[in-house]
């Protein structure tokens, strides 16, 4: 699962969750990688332990710090910058294309297409699943509208920047 963090200046941070291991009812381990220019720049295992209703995190399953429990937020803070959070997809509007044009953000393989031509979709609906870097990414519509054209089919291997789908915004 890929998470995009995008600030107001459209600077983009890409973080991949590459593995989830459930150790017990109280302990989960995640493997996170930060990706820049298709290269992993930092990779860490993060343990989350539930203790008396609260969350604590650790990189070594020994040394713990308290975490503020959050639902999936729309934004996340780094000192003096607020990043918008897009979990599993990046709205195409933020990558230069029109709002209704879905382009590949990285090379990948089309696993599943969940919409048909002329179908009505809502912003945030998953329209297509793309497998990239051994992960499935849900590609979601950034707008309410009607599917104007589907340019790819399941099983297609795509390069970066390929137009996959066009949605006519309402």
């Amino acid at each position: 699962m890929r998470t995009y963090l995008i600030d107001n200046d459209k600077n983009e941070i890409i973080i991949d969750l590459t593995r989830t291991t459930v150790h017990s009812h109280e302990l989960v381990e995640f493997e996170y990688s930060a990706v820049r220019d298709n290269e992993i720049v930092q990779k860490e295992n993060i343990f989350v332990r539930k203790l008396a209703g609260r969350y604590f995190s650790s990189t070594d399953n020994k040394r713990w710090t308290r975490l503020a429990k959050q639902n999936l937020p729309t934004h996340i803070l780094n000192v003096d910058t607020i990043y918008k959070v897009f979990r599993g997809y990046k709205p195409s509007g933020l990558s230069g294309g029109n709002d209704g044009e879905l382009l590949t953000q990285m090379p990948g393989k089309v696993v599943k297409i969940q919409v048909e031509k002329n179908q009505e979709v809502k912003a945030g609906d998953t329209v297509l699943i793309l497998e990239a870097m051994k992960m499935e990414n849900e590609i979601k519509s950034a707008v309410d509208g009607i599917v104007k054209e589907v340019h790819v089919k399941e099983g297609d291997a795509l390069d970066q920047g390929v137009l996959m789908l066009e949605i006519e915004p309402k």
Binding site: I15, Y32, A34
Partner: peptide, 19 residues
């Protein structure tokens, strides 16, 4: 700070999973 953001995301993910 990637590590700090990883920690935050891990907490969010754990909450999503219902830990």
């Amino acid at each position: 700070d990637y590590l700090r953001i990883f920690n935050k995301l891990a907490g969010i993910e754990a909450n999503r999973m219902g830990l």
